[in-house]
Design a protein around this nucleic acid. Structure first.
Lengths: 167, 167
DNA sequence: TACGCCATGTAAATTGTTACATGATTCC
DNA sequence: GGAATCATGTAACAATTTACATGGCGTA
């Protein structure tokens, strides 16, 4: 996972591990964040795989390694980005991908978002069925998480629909 | 983490590891799920700590171990449950706790939910500031994740407010 | 008899965080 | 001179998933 996010950031421009962390805290951190302890080893691995390259330099007396994305890395990243958005269990993984959709052609991005909306509406149906099945047995708060789930998926679907319209 | 969830399920009634997994898939699985590989070792640990007890029996020829919660486990669980709901980064951890709020006195539950609403509204403020800071530099999709974050927190705050009213 | 479900459990692999270690520069 | 920030990195630890291993029962 982290590899793709790092590739996405490097696709925005050449930068160091430290820069990426800083960039993250000002952008994705409310739904995805990584520590230095995962960023630096990941960059090393990716370097070994030829996904990225590095330029070592000295900026203001301090060592600074700036990484850049290679063809291979760019291809891997786009392959990941173009795969369907995971509809998964109430998590917000969709945001991680959408964050990078500026790198996809307008049409492809819309298509993927429509697919995500469809899978979200599928979830709503599932929860409707689940609700019917267990409604009697559950306590007030337990059932409320199910209702929240449903409302959350509805909110998500509506949000993306509106997003596509105002695009 | 998993320990508290298992305690919560056992507080609902005596059951086996397999039962818990089944129960989960029909209730919390859309925001929290665990595998057998984490459930069984966790039950073993908890047994060692005296948080739960076990009764071994044979049901329809198959071995069946049913676990029950002990005083100590119940106390630990309630301590965890009464702690403030983590406001954390777009995750949906709040649902995990709310799911078990039937075990708290009405008033305590409301109080905790009000606290959660406040922390959520704090998040909205933070994102407003972040938005003002980076609005020019970001691409359409990148900025949209920030807007989604804000809308999501708004949705969450409103949802819980409504929930408290209709209670 | 073979497949699917019930039921428990272990081991390896994965993925990541926290804490530590190092060192330079800038600002007070 | 000392704290904060810039900057890179490693090692220990934590939590979990995946895959494997085992075995009995019901049913087609």
């Amino acid at each position: 996972m982290i590899e793709y996010i790092l590739l996405g950031f490097l696709k925005k421009g050449e930068m160091s591990g430290y820069d990426i962390k800083f960039y993250m805290s000002n952008s994705t951190s409310h739904f995805y964040d990584a520590s230095f302890g995962s960023i630096y080893p990941a960059l090393k691995r990716m370097l070994g795989l030829g996904l990225i390259g590095v330029r070592e330099g000295i900026s203001e007396g301090r060592l600074k390694k700036t990484y850049f994305i290679r063809e291979k890395g760019s291809a891997e990243f786009l392959k990941w980005l173009e795969a369907p958005v995971p509809g998964g269990r109430g998590k917000m993984e969709h945001l991680i991908k959408i964050f990078f959709y500026d790198f996809l052609p307008e049409q492809k991005a819309s298509e993927l978002i429509r697919g995500f909306i469809a899978s979200t509406e599928e979830k709503i149906k599932e929860l409707d069925e689940l609700e019917a099945r267990i409604a009697e047995k559950a306590g007030r708060f337990s059932i409320s998480t199910l209702l929240f789930g449903k409302d959350y998926y509805k909110f998500t679907a509506e949000w993306y629909k509106k997003f596509l319209k105002t695009a």
